[in-house]
Write a protein that binds this DNA or RNA. Structure first.
Lengths: 223, 223
DNA sequence: TGCGTAGCGAGAACACCGTTCTTGACATCC
DNA sequence: GGATGTCAAGAACGGTGTTCTCGCTACGCA
């Protein structure tokens, strides 16, 4: 096991620093990230950035992957602070964890859940980190394992396949409820983070918790 | 009543034409709209556009307002094609109308429901058109007027005020369910339009209908 | 130990962008 | 018919992403 060469290490540190500055600019200026501005902050000329990222889109992609990982880590950490048998507590912890991360990092949230940047196509590296949160929710519902009332539902083969990789399959009704909850979570956060919700300027946290409990009810979690 | 002067009319027609070309560019290139490209398409120099719109943001604002109006009109038209006493039919018609418009105009949808453009602050002209669809849904639920089970809910004073302008007030439980459905509708469409939903590439329409029916159930609409 | 090479930052260049200002032409109104 | 206001054009400014060439430095290998 050869240690990484000094060259490689300083290169990786420089990449991290570029991303850190880019994140700061992202938080300040929104989605239009300027390579030249980032370079200025690093006392570097713009073209030097191309030694580390082949294009602006590549830098954005790196930020997107980091954001997915960061979000999933925040949600996972919030959940693991709750006793495993407190299903509803874990559920709410995941939802709150996602919300708090989103409110703390609105620009990065917009990067991963807002309108996609025009010419940009999400590379396949981004699909795996993107599924972590919904798998977290699905695992909680699977732990509950209640008997659901039958409900007419379309086939969700892809999600079946996704969960099958973990531990067998999941009843379609459960998957359906998880999808509803997941959609509701991000629908709510989109409105809140993107400021489309002029309503309810007060008591947003209570509103959020209440609706996440509603979704937990729908998913069959015990009260 | 003096007829609008010829000057005023040709000016308004030119404004419409600029918006039409801008919409075309928006559909092609996504959210980064170039004034110079629009001007080129009109065989016009870029600075000439400033006679009609004081800035790029102003043009975007005009497009946003048009999009809200267009979307509300599409949803309203879909709903009014259904008999008034078919509550569930009206509900589904609104949802499908919104979805079809969104899929047909993804860039404009992104403009109004995606991440906000960075430096841009939505002027107050945009809040009234933005409420039309949710008022449409609220009206259907109000027509049903079922007795809801009591549910703990945060105060939704703003939405109360909004609906109070129409015809009296609405029970909080109903408002709550309408909000859930509204959030779910746009959460679903965000995933679909922005391509975040790699799952369920097949049977998306069935998936959509099924979930909109779920929300109708939740809102207390008769089957 | 010395050398070739690969990685690095600087800087100039290109084509594009939004925006402002000036200039000259044209239609409109008194 | 002359004054007025609107219009398109064009140049200019500062900004952007990206490419290329240039020296320089440090690493890896003989």
């Amino acid at each position: 096991m050869s240690a990484p060469s000094l060259r490689a290490r300083v290169r990786s540190e420089m990449s991290q620093e570029i991303k850190a500055v880019a994140r700061r600019h992202l938080a300040a200026d929104g989605a239009n990230l300027s390579l030249r501005a980032v370079a200025r902050d690093l006392d570097i000329v713009a073209s030097a950035l191309y030694r580390y990222f082949p294009s602006r889109d590549a830098l954005l992609t790196a930020l997107i992957i980091d954001a997915y990982d960061d979000l999933a880590a925040a949600a996972g950490a919030a959940e693991s602070a709750v006793p495993r048998d407190d299903l509803r507590g874990r559920w709410i912890a995941v939802c709150r964890g996602v919300r708090e991360w989103a409110l703390a990092h609105p620009a990065e949230y917009g990067l991963i859940y807002g309108s996609p940047v025009p010419g940009y196509a999400a590379p396949p590296d981004t699909v795996e980190p993107a599924t972590k949160v919904i798998l977290l929710l699905a695992a909680i519902v699977a732990d509950a394992d209640p008997s659901f009332p039958a409900v007419p539902t379309a086939v969700h083969e892809d999600l079946q396949r996704l969960t099958a990789d973990r531990d067998g399959t999941m009843p379609e009704e459960q998957l359906d409820r998880v999808l509803v909850a997941w959609t509701h979570l991000y629908g709510t956060l989109n409105f809140e983070v993107f400021g489309r919700l002029t309503l309810m300027i007060e008591a947003r946290s209570a509103y959020f918790d209440h609706h996440m409990h509603l979704m937990a009810d729908l998913a069959g979690l015990p009260r």
